[in-house]
Computed example of a mutant assay.
Amino acid sequence: QTGQMLAALSGLSQGTFASEVVVDNDKVQVTREIDGGLQTVELTLPAIVTTDLRLNEPRYAKLPDIMKAKKKPMDIKTPADLGVEVASKVTLLKVESPAERKGGIKVGSVDELVDKLKNEAKVL
């Protein structure tokens, strides 16, 4: 949902659940699996592309590489260092509780139920 929401908020085109991505100059072709087979869409860059598990085979880190990574210094940056504003642009207008449900009624027989469905609820 994050990719779709980001595309909607930024006004960019989107390609979702990509199993293959081909970039060609200012265009990108995104192939995705749908119920009837494969669908390929062409988007103009910049665009938001979300991926599927079948896009590539993940690389797993080896133990020596993990040990090397633990020794490297970690630079801590804030969003302001990158020129990003994180203030919310959503305004809450109002919060209401849902209407209380009315209590149900018990009927004595099937005939009474059918009569109430026909005459009161008008569903039959």
Rank of each mutant, 00 (worst) to 15 (best):
G37Y: 12
L12P: 10
A47C: 10
Q29M: 13
K89V: 04
P58S: 01
T51G: 06
R32Y: 07
A80F: 03
A69F: 01
D81I: 09
A87V: 02
R54D: 08
D26N: 14
P64S: 07
K70H: 02
Q39E: 15
L55I: 15
P58T: 00
Y60W: 02
Q39A: 10
T50D: 02
A18Y: 05
K71C: 05
P46A: 12
K77N: 04
I34V: 15
L45V: 15
Y60F: 00
I48M: 06
M74A: 10
G83N: 09
E20W: 07
P73I: 07
P46R: 11
G83C: 07
E96K: 06
K94D: 15
V23I: 15
P79Q: 12
V90H: 12
M74L: 10
L38F: 14
L92S: 11
G15Y: 09
L55C: 00
V28Q: 03
E20F: 12
V28N: 03
P64T: 02
S19P: 03
R32Q: 13
P73M: 08
M74R: 04
L63Q: 01
D81Y: 00
D26L: 13
S88E: 06
D26A: 14
I66A: 08
P79I: 00
D35R: 05
N25S: 14
G36M: 08
D26R: 13
L12M: 09
L43H: 01
L82T: 01
V28H: 04
V95I: 13
V30N: 02
S19Q: 13
E96H: 03
L38T: 03
D24N: 15
L45P: 05
S13P: 12
T51R: 00
Q39F: 00
V22S: 12
P64N: 06
T31G: 08
V28L: 05
S88N: 07
V41M: 12
P79H: 09
E57C: 11
